[in-house]
Design a protein around this nucleic acid. Structure first.
Lengths: 348, 348
DNA sequence: ACGTTTCCCCAAAACGTTTTGGGTAGCATC
DNA sequence: GATGCTACCCAAAACGTTTTGGGGAAACGT
């Protein structure tokens, strides 16, 4: 059984290979009679023809592959969602995702970038897992590229939502911080602590800003004494919460930088005999179900839209590649972070 | 600047394309003088030649791509490790990993399998994220295939470690269960509860068996009343632990099916005023750092070797493909699960 | 009746490799 | 002097598409 190709289909339909190719890809300005088109389609289907991608790629110089290169895929629980989003977008447009990983190691990154170029992917998604600001590697400079959960170090593209630089998508940290805090102010809380960490990343500053904005919007005075930063994520939540809650005028609610720190806050509260949400309301960030559903009471948390970001990045990249509309497309997106309500917030 | 290919290299080196191809791939029984070989190599390097993968693929009928199809990549925090393992193995052997996802939906699976075949990957890794037993889809029947964190439903391959069926790798659940329990018996515990769930998967039965084996090895009687299964993973740990700990002759140690249930056990213990590890020792399973490092005291847990399994699967698959040694290779592997000791276990 | 346009279609070149099927030169063996 | 062998090398075919550059016939305008 000889592998069946376009040639066999042509024979079966009684037309030339050219015509078969034309109808199968319906090329824009190739004229083929409706009747012949039918015949070809039928023949193709009858023979169960599937195109040979390598031959096609060889001719068209496009592989239909998108490289997804990420920093620390193994150490973050979100990785799957980011990747799945991108994969689905790619899939829907007939692209495939091929995986690369830098492991946060410049040497590995070098190697992977090399691999990435000689696999001849059509475009690349450069992903970081924790909303980092990155400077895009030289090797990717002149390629179709989009940044995923990362923003470019050179602010050149920042000035507008349109055109220019490389597209990127990140969570809207400040809106997220605002959402979390508003949930607390809306429940009547007026003394709201912010338990955060000391990292200098967009997430910390953004969420803090959101916190401040929400306070202002609620007519509350920002009190620096209510925000505690700790350097450890595993211990920090506990330490900071403990510190805040032992004060005389303890806050009635805590906004925690992430669920891990919220977990520590829960422990601090338990040790001090404070019930959640009766004596203390808590909202977390990240919506890691391992934690949010594991805690008691279940933790209200702001979710990071990992899937959506991945999906957007994928779509954005194929847009660039397929170049359907040359119209200056949106180039930067901060994606909203929805609040998922559970049982850790109550009216004051 | 014309793209430089094998033709240019040939010209530069003053030899034929044939010869260039021969030396660049050093084909086994092609004879080429050492001096010519040098010349070719030099020319290639001087021109910065990199082979065109599509052309090569077209001719050799091999894409150098491995399909990795997994069930629920987005909903499990381990996904990254499994994938990274496979990716690294692939990378090291010059393969790339292209990603597919079934999302546990037969319709999607159908579509992805279709995509997978017409992308013409050389081989496929069929991965599940929670050690499932699967029946391999018809579409994969006659392809180079290895199962990752999954075992085949038809036990045809089970009879030996060699030859025959499709290779698969899973965690050694029973050894893991034994390890966990031994850690407790070794600390002198004699009444050890097992908090587990009701799912009918290899993990539950395996870990239970390990538990029993360890008890036997320590000369302890197995007491069915000490194992409590609950249907919910988020609440089950709490409920089961609470139930066990309220008994008059409460266990002094708990082996929990996974970290999530251990998290519940911590809460139960706290509510009953039992200190960990002073009054109660706990060991978990899965080693999810989000939990193990978030709990206080930090949870001793048995780790699942996700990276290693992924790596093995990748290596195994390229072995099959490159077919270096036809010698019947190991076909099944249960991988050991190391114990990572933290602070939740103490002598009785 | 004769160009011109329009509509449909095709043969062959091209993409960049690997592989096939020799070819040539030198040397040894009969 | 033919034959055979060995060591080295090459021209051309092949892989399965897409794309180029028309070509023939019908329809149309004059």
């Amino acid at each position: 059984m000889a592998r069946i190709g376009i040639r066999q289909v042509a024979a079966e339909a009684g037309v030339s290979m050219t015509t078969v190719s034309h109808v199968l890809n319906d090329v824009p300005n190739a004229q083929v009679r409706a009747e012949t088109r039918e015949r070809v389609l039928l023949a193709a289907q009858r023979l169960g023809y599937t195109p040979n991608r390598m031959a096609r790629s060889l001719r068209t110089r496009r592989t239909g592959a998108l490289g997804l290169i990420s920093d620390s895929i193994a150490t973050t629980p979100y990785a799957g969602q980011l990747i799945l989003g991108a994969q689905r977008a790619a899939q829907e447009h007939g692209y495939m995702i091929v995986l690369f990983n830098t492991e946060d190691d410049p040497v590995v990154e070098e190697r992977e970038l090399q691999a990435l170029t000689d696999y001849q992917v059509d475009g690349v998604i450069y992903a970081t897992m924790y909303h980092r600001v990155v400077s895009v590697p030289q090797a990717l400079a002149n390629r179709p590229l989009v940044l995923l959960d990362a923003e470019p170090a050179d602010a050149q593209a920042v000035d507008g939502d349109k055109g220019g630089g490389v597209p990127w998508v990140v969570p809207d940290e400040v809106a997220g911080g605002r959402t979390a805090t508003e949930e607390l102010t809306a429940n009547g809380h007026r003394r709201i602590g912010f338990v955060t960490n000391v990292d200098d990343v967009p997430a910390t500053s953004g969420r803090l800003q959101g916190y401040q904005e929400a306070l202002a919007a609620a007519g509350l005075q920002f009190d620096p004494a209510l925000v505690i930063s700790d350097e450890s994520e595993s211990w920090g939540g506990y330490r900071a919460a403990r510190f805040l809650l032992e004060r005389g005028d303890r806050p009635t609610a805590l906004f925690c930088y992430n669920d891990r720190m919220a977990m520590g806050a829960y422990r601090a509260a338990a040790e001090l005999g404070l019930r959640i949400p009766g004596d203390l309301s808590v909202v977390g960030f990240d919506d890691q179900e391992l934690i949010t559903l594991g805690l008691y009471p279940e933790l209200t948390s702001v979710a990071l839209p990992h899937f959506d970001m991945g999906y957007w990045a994928g779509e954005r990249l194929v847009e660039v590649l397929d170049d359907t509309d040359q119209s200056a497309p949106v180039s930067r997106l901060t994606m909203p972070c929805p609040l998922v309500r559970r049982s850790s917030v109550a009216p004051v």
